[in-house]
Design a binder for these strands. Structure first.
Lengths: 146, 146
DNA sequence: GCGAAACAATTGAGGTAGTCAAGTAGCCCA
DNA sequence: TGGGCTACTTGACTACCTCAATTGTTTCGC
């Protein structure tokens, strides 16, 4: 198999990956009572690192900032996060996890772990896949976020 | 790093993969005038293999059959696919690509190829990733589709 | 300082997507 | 032939998402 064929097959798999991932996530989030979009947003809220402006969250979710506002309201109503003013810039709001939000986040990870499709791989293969994914993801983020 | 840590990191990457994939797809489909859901459905229509019942498409999209009906109507209105009765079972409808649909499908692949994040990998790494992905995907499909 | 431009977030309108419940049509088997 | 099963469709309703317009805040030129 030549390089272009391999690349094309990877792209094919990439396109098919969307429904697959959402399928797994769907089972995971049903158990914690969130919608997919809400879970995606929740997942992007940093746990330990410094808070991220809503604008940045919109970029990472590939959606309009107004949509992040709506989703943030939903998360706030459930008590999983709260919006806070940015200390240095009054225009900016950040989203911060509440203790309940942190708890849900852990449950998400636990559930996903239980349903993860990576059990089909050996320990060594998992390690390989992890480093390859890291390389792909970092390259992509660098290109997109500048 | 032990096995559980590796697995956990993979799961973390998996959850973050959803927005990433939709981000890439979004750029791809904007150029062909489809929505994400419509493109996902279009992508599942077999090109050469025998037609697939709508029911099966719903399973693969992880959504309600009625939703597949709605999306199919949209694709038909754009002339990209048409619904056909199954020759052996009058209850079953299948979705078949039109020539225009095939053309769009090729453009999707071309666009995705151009935006693919796999350029960050060497030829050998791409080959590795492909075989790992194949293993993961086949394991997952086998578990889910029986 | 002061006003204009720039920026982040929000609100409101409108459309798409998705689920659930109920209905229709075709198959199968006694 | 009739009852039950299956595949699809329809209708009602909710959630999601985007675009355009608005509000509040910062920044820059003067």
């Amino acid at each position: 198999m030549n390089a272009q064929e391999t690349h094309a097959l990877l792209v094919d798999q990439l396109i098919g990956l969307g429904p697959l991932v959402t399928g797994i996530i769907k089972g995971v989030i049903d158990e914690v009572g969130l919608t997919e979009s809400q879970a995606n947003l929740l997942w992007l809220i940093p746990v330990d690192a410094s808070p991220v402006p809503l604008k940045q969250l919109a970029v990472r979710l590939h959606c309009d900032p107004s949509n992040v506002t709506l989703l943030s309201v939903k998360l706030e109503e459930r008590g999983l996060a709260r919006r806070a003013r940015h200390p240095d810039d009054g225009r900016v709001r950040t989203l911060v996890l509440t203790p309940a939000g942190r708890k849900i986040r852990r449950r998400l990870l636990t559930n996903a772990y239980a349903r993860s499709p990576f059990g089909a791989l050996s320990e060594k293969e998992q390690s390989q896949l992890h480093s390859l994914m890291t390389k792909v993801l970092s390259g992509y983020d660098a290109r997109r976020l500048g």
